[in-house]
Amino acid sequence: MHRQSTAFSAAGRASHLPSSASTAAALAKLAEKKKEFDAVSALERASSSYLERIQQVADDCEVMADAGQIHGEVLAQWPIMFEILGQFLSSAQQLQDDGAETDVDSVGQRLVRVPIEDLQKATERT
């Protein structure tokens, strides 16, 4: 009769029965996968938060760009304003040189001011 060795029979039995080692390995792998999932979830949340902050910065940059454009448009009007003021001063100087009885302040009031006192008197009369 032929007899099998004890080492072979012990190894054969261990592979057929559910061992605590394979269960422990499966639980360790499950715990590792759960850690990976939690890490990916945390990364996704952090990425979403970062995206929101970047979008807010982009919105702020658009507001600043619009404000810069408006400032540029206002600054472009200054040369025209200086030209108008120069024409006013030269016309006022010509009036004085011609000996006209009007002074520079009254001409300036007609050019750039609304005479509120006259308007108030006119509304009081009506």
Rank of each mutant, 00 (worst) to 15 (best):
Cys61Leu: 13
Phe82His: 07
Glu101Ala: 03
Ile54Gly: 01
Thr102Trp: 10
Ala31Phe: 01
Arg45Asn: 09
Asp60Tyr: 07
Ser49Trp: 00
Val57Pro: 00
Arg113Ser: 14
Ala92Phe: 03
Trp78Pro: 00
Val107Gln: 06
Gln69Asn: 05
Phe37Trp: 07
Ala92Asn: 01
Ala24Cys: 04
Ala31Arg: 00
Ser106Leu: 02
Ser47Leu: 07
Ser91Phe: 14
Gln55Ala: 05
Ala67Ile: 01
Arg45Ser: 14
Phe88Lys: 09
Glu117Met: 13
Lys34Phe: 04
Leu43Ser: 12
Val40Ala: 07
Leu85Ser: 10
Val112Lys: 06
Ser90Phe: 07
Gly99Tyr: 02
Asp66Glu: 15
Gly72Lys: 01
Gln109Glu: 06
Gln69Ser: 10
Ala24Met: 00
Gln87Val: 11
Val57Met: 04
Leu51Ala: 05
Glu83Gln: 09
Lys121Trp: 04
Lys34Gly: 05
Gln93His: 15
Ala25Val: 00
Thr102Ser: 10
Ser90His: 13
Glu73Trp: 04
Ala58Trp: 06
Ser48Met: 10
Lys121Leu: 14
Ser106Lys: 11
Val74Ser: 00
Leu75Pro: 00
Glu117His: 15
Glu36Tyr: 02
Arg113Gln: 13
Arg110Asp: 12
Gly86Asp: 06
Leu27Met: 04
Ser49Tyr: 04
Gln93Cys: 14
Asp59Ser: 15
Ser22Lys: 13
Leu95Thr: 13
Asp59Pro: 05
Tyr50Ile: 08
Pro115Ser: 05
Asp98Thr: 09
Ala76Ile: 01
Ala24Asp: 01
Thr23Val: 03
Val63Gln: 08
Val63Asn: 09
Asp97Asn: 03
Gly99Arg: 02
Glu32Arg: 10
Ser106Tyr: 08
Ala42Thr: 02
Gln77Thr: 11
His71Ser: 14
Arg53Gly: 03
Val57Leu: 08
Ala76Met: 01
Gly108Ala: 02
Leu119Ser: 15
Asp59Gly: 12
Phe88Glu: 10
Val104Phe: 06
Asp98Trp: 14
Asp60Leu: 06
Gln69Gly: 11
Gln56Val: 00
Ala31Cys: 05
Asp105Val: 12
Leu119Pro: 15
His71Gln: 12
Leu30Val: 07
Glu62Leu: 08
Arg53Tyr: 06
Ser22Leu: 12
Ala25Tyr: 01
Glu32Cys: 08
Gly99His: 02
Ser49Leu: 09
Glu117Phe: 11
Phe37Lys: 05
Gln120Val: 15
Leu95Arg: 13
Gly99Thr: 01
Asp103Ser: 03
Ala65Arg: 07
Val63Gly: 04
Ala31Met: 00
Gly72Phe: 01
Asp38His: 01
